[in-house]
Design a protein around this nucleic acid. Structure first.
Length: 501
RNA sequence: GGGGCGUUAGCUCAGUUGGCAGAGCACCGGACUUUUAAUCCGUAGGUCCCGGGUUCGAAUCCCGGACGCCCUACCA
């Protein structure tokens, strides 16, 4: 590592060695805090200096030193724990000359320490703890980033998230919110009589979504395995097994590009409900989204996102893909939305590839993605997806070329995908065969033929609807973060170079 | 994949026409009993991303490479 020759690190190691020489442990674990900085603020935040002077209760706090302002016989340090920061006063008079000298001479910004003391208010009015005893716990060898500019390099922030979390408190808030959101989702589904399940992450066949998988290998079984691209086919096997309402929150892996809204592993919520149709899940998703906004932002159902304000208070509009495409393309008139030639002409005009074996359904979807998707800023459901691009979805009873499927858009991005499930094993077999043909034609993302899934359907899967929601994107939205990397603790990055060994 | 920008002290960044490698903070020494970017005085700290080339002389110019960011294309 780059520590060699670093003077600061060497000096801090020396300080640790000095502790050892004196019989103390620079990595002690003999201190139990009995309070948090938040508790002190809650209890005494409103009390004035006179009232605090009366308080004799001593509190034990532990945390990391984020700042140290030292005077001759007095020092102030900012102590950070999981709940926030609080100032500690280290006075020679109160602490005694030896302990005070330790604080001033041996303690560094970044060290983890414990103090026991009483609440007080300093002359400048800041609530603090007047330390009566000081306990050194953990030496920090590496200096924290500079105090004023802090750590701003995005690459370092992602690679060394631990440092990012120490010095950028709003980062911790994002991940605390993420945790709350996921907990709220669990609460919501459990409250609606769903069962949480965990299905395989390693699949012999990577099905359930049109995506390129990661491949790995099982040595003992001598077989290739794929990291899952979606849990869908396993969750629907559970519907066959009689688990009528299931959900899973877990990682999917797709061997595709990395961008501001794509990480190779991302967290997906999928849920399936027997005897529901796709429109039932629109209602459910609308309610769930409002619940999550409320969880994070309270009862005001609007959300700031970048320069926009997203309004969740009104019913989310629902329009068909054909309506949306018609409205966005003046050169298309009613009745043209299934005209392959007209759609192909638009594709060519907007510079999109048109393959010979693509039907109107695929072309309509391309035109939708290119001309409509980005404009869907407010919460919007788009339904009426072509069967051609929906290999696992149920056909509409009246319009067999359309699947009972919808996607949910906000800020021009897809956030959810849902459909009434195809449970006719013969229809499903034919759809898989069409996918096989596409695969043979060079489509790397076409789904594999899953014979066991067909067998499961042949036992009879209850009519059902299912939905997938990208949790990372939802968290981006709820925490107003521009990049998926800002809501994933350790986003995928290239390995650091020049670190060979 | 295509285009643009960047990489200099632990951190954030300057660096003029090619002429001794710089600042602030952090660190170290000193002063200071109410600071909160503490202040003041002093010291120390460098593979200028890497490898070639041009030149008397390269952080600076040229070529190649690595890494990162932004835009763009594909996927959730």
């Amino acid at each position: 590592m780059e520590s060699d020759g670093n003077q600061i690190i060497a000096l801090r190691r020396e300080k640790a060695a000095r502790y050892r020489e004196e019989g103390a442990d620079p990595f002690a674990n003999d201190f139990k805090p009995d309070a948090t900085t938040a508790k002190i603020r809650d209890l005494y935040g409103e009390k004035d200096a006179e009232a605090l002077a009366e308080v004799e209760t001593e509190y034990a706090l532990a945390g990391r030193i984020l700042a140290l302002r030292s005077f001759g016989n007095m020092a102030f340090l900012d102590l950070a724990d999981r709940t926030g920061k609080l100032q500690i006063v280290a006075s020679k008079k109160v602490l005694g000359p030896e302990a005070h000298k330790d604080v001033v001479k041996k303690w560094d910004i970044g060290d983890i320490v414990g103090v026991v003391g009483t609440p007080t208010r300093t002359k400048t009015g800041e609530l603090s703890i007047m330390a009566k005893s000081a306990h050194f716990l953990t030496k920090s060898f590496r200096p924290l980033p500079e105090k004023w500019h802090g750590l701003t390099d995005m690459d370092t922030r992602y690679r060394q998230r631990y440092v990012d979390l120490i010095v950028n408190p709003e980062v911790k808030d994002v991940f605390l919110t993420r945790s709350k959101v996921v907990a709220a989702i669990r609460r919501y589904f459990v409250g609606h009589d769903y069962t949480e399940v965990e299905t395989p992450m390693m699949h012999p066949l990577a099905g359930g979504a049109t995506a390129k998988p990661f491949e790995t290998y099982h040595n003992a079984l001598d077989m290739p395995l794929f990291l899952r691209v979606a849990p869908e086919l396993y969750l629907k096997r559970l519907l066959v097994g009689g688990l009528e309402r299931v959900f899973e929150i877990n990682r999917n892996f797709r061997n595709e590009g990395i961008s501001i809204q794509h990480n190779p592993e991302f967290t997906m919520l999928e849920f399936y409900q027997a005897y529901a149709v796709h429109t039932d899940l629109m209602d459910l998703t609308e309610e769930l989204m409002r619940e999550l906004v409320r969880e994070v932002h309270g009862d005001d159902l609007t959300l700031p996102y970048a320069q926009e304000t997203i309004d969740f208070s009104k019913p989310f509009p629902r329009l068909t893909m054909e309506e949306a495409v018609l409205a966005a393309n003046d050169d298309l008139s009613e009745g043209d939305t299934r005209n392959r030639d007209k759609l192909a002409a638009i594709c060519k005009r907007i510079g999109q590839e048109v393959k010979a074996d693509w039907g109107w359904g695929k072309l309509l979807t391309v035109v939708f993605e290119e001309t409509v998707e980005k404009s869907l800023r407010q919460p919007t459901f788009v339904h009426g997806f072509p069967v051609e691009v929906s290999p696992l979805a149920r056909r509409n009873d009246k319009d067999p070329e359309i699947a009972d499927r919808w996607e949910f858009f906000i800020v021009g991005r897809e956030h959810a995908n849902a459909f009434s499930e195809l449970n006719d094993p013969d229809d499903q077999r034919e759809r898989f065969e069409a996918q096989m043909k596409a695969k043979a034609g060079g489509d790397e993302e076409a789904q594999p033929f899953d014979a066991d899934y067909i067998r499961a359907l042949e036992y009879g899967m209850p009519p059902a609807a299912g939905c997938g929601i990208g949790i990372d994107r939802v968290v981006m939205l709820l925490t107003n973060q521009p990049s998926i990397r800002d809501v994933i603790l350790f986003p995928h990055l290239r390995p650091e170079s020049g670190r060979g060994e």
